[in-house]
Design a protein around this nucleic acid. Structure first.
Lengths: 343, 343
DNA sequence: CTGAAAGCGCTTACAG
DNA sequence: CTGAAAGCGCTTACAG
């Protein structure tokens, strides 16, 4: 069925050119759908390509063209559920466009460097996607000066294309849901996440939560603000501290579902029931949330990654103008929230 | 502080060579710790490299050397928790060795192709890691004929280097734990996972479970064998079906923690308590397992990835002999298992 | 629409 | 220990 392959190893563009009776330039053009190639020629080339199982050597192609056809992605914590999901979304879109994804951990200690372009990505990527690397407008200004397009995920920026949820609104959704159920003693659990620098997410969610209470003439009590470190263990400890208060809250909003699992754990340890004795709201809609009946503020995490990747491809195509893409949040009410206990 | 960079754009090896007063060959050698370079020369080169912020263009380097310095990883389902963890482990080790990781989805429908080398990886990888692509000895034989080193994760193979847990033993651990608690009516929930082909994992776990019962003169009842599809929803449905039996089991072993979450969900829906009314054992030790008190067979998933990557690097170094690396499983007893209800 | 040729930025025998 | 030079496999003005 198949013709003999001229020599061991992979066929090169020369093999194809020779076998098709054209120049390598023509093969190159035919393969990339260059407009000025006769239909006949193209067909012949494609046949030979098939026959010889020819695959372009991407290293050679990238060296010659100066385009790496690769996007770099940097995040401080690649293994969290949130980041894995975002990466999966980015990968999905990039793969369709036949772009490679090069992933690197963004050492928070070396944040400043990131804004000047990461050395690992030098000459190797056509663009950079930043996930959860809270830049603030200051870092963004530097990023905008990079010779590469940059897309930032998780934060709304002016000088650089970004995609993010409205954290203020998300926290309001949680607070309003709880207040509608009749709660008056509301607590909030956030954290510094994995960064030591100021982090927009906890700040914005705290702000939204407090402002929702204000609108209802309530005030967020300082003892009702806890740090849960964005981990299950942290959420558990935070909940324990809240339960130990002389006047514990009747409802707790945790800024991640994982912290909420920890809070539910703490409740179980005390023989208390979430949604009955204490109401719990998380944030994310993590895959396990539904099965444990967790009420949460859902964010379409994978979609955020997809959108980010598309914006990157757009930027590569037409240099695309800088803009911000907002993503919607929705409250999903489940079993962990209910009316406060009638004491 | 810094010397002027000769021209716009990145410095090339020529810039470094010129500036250090040596040939590019010497720069190349100095940079890769080639033995035959005078200490003085090397120091001078490294200084200039620093000064010019020189970074090797990997496309050029790979093209010239013929080594891609990249490992390809193929898996049918990249986004599951299990696979993400494995990938994180592989990535961790590879990054230290400054190898790139190229990730691809292994379309189960095109399994056969994988064994002949994946086209996406042609000329782009120095080796291939297969995760959860159940090959069986048949596929492995073909893999062994590839010109690249291959490491298979999740299955014990003879013709190709592999790393896997002892699934038979893992299932026995679960069964013995339940029988020691006094259970006699034991059920098992498995699934076809994401593959339609025969899959060694469910088969081996079923075998181990059944054999443990046999050793205790019990027999696994056909109505106590259910399919949970390796998803939360699937585990929930399977548990519902088991509960609907005229004589339901008092203990259920689910082949993944995610299915176990589904089972716990089903119990809660019926007002039953895991560990009291029905005992539940999972498999994995997923991050959420501890917080919901799930008894489970723990497998060190990330470590499996790390080991796989190390074996790959070894194979690249010394062509390493084919061998199998076993990984230990341990039972972690928590709240979802207890004595059967005294009816 | 097509080809000859230069060039992308490295690495590596080979020679000294 | 070091350098001159060929070559890795493509792409892309340039010329026709």
């Amino acid at each position: 069925m198949e013709h003999v392959i001229p020599h061991a190893g992979r066929a090169t563009i020369d093999d194809v050119a020779r076998s098709a009776g054209v120049s390598t330039a023509t093969v190159s053009r035919a393969l990339r759908n260059h407009p000025n190639v006769a239909e006949n020629t193209k067909r012949r080339v494609l046949e030979v390509v098939e026959q010889l199982h020819y695959v372009t050597n991407s290293n050679a192609s990238r060296l010659a063209s100066g385009h790496s056809h690769t996007i770099g992605l940097l995040s401080p914590l690649l293994t969290s559920w949130y980041t894995s999901e975002v990466v999966a979304g980015v990968e999905e879109v990039l793969a369709l466009a036949r772009f490679d994804l090069l992933i690197g951990t963004a050492n928070p200690a070396a944040r400043e460097r990131i804004f000047c372009g990461d050395a690992r990505f030098h000459q190797r990527t056509d663009g950079i996607v930043l996930v959860d690397v809270f830049c603030s407008e200051e870092g963004a200004t530097k990023l905008a000066e990079l010779e590469l397009p940059v897309v930032v995920l998780g934060e709304q920026l002016k000088s650089v294309t970004s995609v993010s949820v409205d954290n203020v609104r998300g926290a309001r959704l949680a607070a309003c849901h709880l207040m509608e159920l009749g709660h008056r003693k509301l607590a909030i659990v956030g954290g510094h996440a994995h960064l030591d620098v100021a982090h927009n997410v906890p700040t914005e969610r705290l702000e939204g939560f407090a402002s929702a209470l204000s609108s209802a003439s309530l005030q967020l009590q300082p003892q009702y603000v806890e740090d849960g470190d964005f981990t299950i263990e942290g959420g558990r400890s935070a909940m324990r501290r809240l339960l130990a208060l002389s006047d514990p809250p009747t409802a707790v909003f945790l800024m991640s579902d994982e912290m909420a699992y920890g809070a539910m754990w703490a409740l179980r340890d005390e023989g208390l029931q979430a949604g009955h004795d204490v109401s719990i709201v998380g944030f994310d809609d993590h895959p396990v949330a539904e099965s444990v009946g967790l009420t949460t503020v859902r964010q379409p995490v994978r979609e955020i990654g997809r959108i980010g990747a598309r914006l990157m491809l757009d930027a590569l195509e037409d240099g695309g103008a800088v803009h911000h893409h907002p993503v919607e949040l929705t409250l999903v009410a489940r079993a962990t929230t209910g009316a406060p206990p009638t004491n």
